[in-house]
Amino acid sequence: MLEALRARPWTWSFVGALGAFVATIATLHGQGAAGVATAALALAVFMVLAGIGQMFVITLGPGNIDLSLAANIGLASAVSMTVMNGSDAGIGLGLAAAAGCGLAIGAANYLLIWLLRIPPIIATLSSSFIIQSIDIAYGRGLQIKPPPGFADFTSLQIAGLPLLALLTMLFTVAAAVLLRRTIYGRWVLATGQNAHAARLAGVAVGRVRAITYMVCGVLGGLDGALLAGYFRGANVDIGNEYLLASIAVVVVGGTSVAGGEANLPGIWGASLFMVLLLTMLNTFGAGAGARLLFTGLIIVAVIAFGGGRKTA
């Protein structure tokens, strides 16, 4: 049993999530268990969306990563709120604007990588600086609240489960199908394993990379809009924790950082784990320092236990 679990390190994230949940409930003396679970699911959604986008990029192969995700989310939150302009009629347009903004960011990232041959880490890092500046200048003094319909939508629950979580779970299934059963998905996995061999096998490596960065951008954009809706307002820093979180949930969830292998259920497990961990620490009354310390140690421990890339 231990071997089976160990062979799938991402299952530990679900185990860990459960453990953190139990510890939290125990401290609260059994009260509010449903509330904790619901809140965790709701918050996990935002991590999952960012994580899925990051996962696609990371799967492209070693060195591929999107460090502009946080800035993207921040800008998208401002853009979506501005376009929606507080009215329900503007929801569709606002979402489209956020997605479009993310798409443009993804395309710009890829252009930097492809045209200027800048390594993705640096390219997305540089673009994150630029996006941040745009966001600061654009969003200065922005006070627009989300339209009431949109805000309600992000908090809507069905039988205790957040609607957003259900939709995101469906989306995760769709992403898994995309990865394994479409030509695009196979091409991503091939490129990640060996880009050179992929090219020789007829894969349009450049196109695959471009599409993937844009997909990640769009997911970041949508995430920003949803976050603005859930937290009732946009701000520059709304995406900051999601940069490191997106990478963490991808890897703790079992996707290989070397590329070519992706794990979607693991992203849910890892997101729930991270959210519940923070909830647990909050319940214990830990300060910011202790929270960070503990989160970091857990991440390292989980990965160290699971072991790393299998040697070829």
């Binding site: 990563i65 490191l244 990478i247 963490a248 890897v251 703790v252 950082v257 070397a258 910011a288 320092g289 202790a290 929270r291 960070l292 310390l293 503990f294 989160t295 970091g296 140690l297 857990i298 991440i299 390292v300 990965i303 160290a304 072991g307 790393g308 890339r309 299998k310 040697t311």
Partner: peptide, 19 residues
């Protein structure tokens, strides 16, 4: 443990920051 350094050092960054 043959671990990816990006993620391990990411976790350690939380640790050092907390400390």
């Amino acid at each position: 443990r043959n671990l990816p350094s990006i993620v391990v050092t990411l976790g350690m960054s939380f640790v050092w920051q907390g400390l």
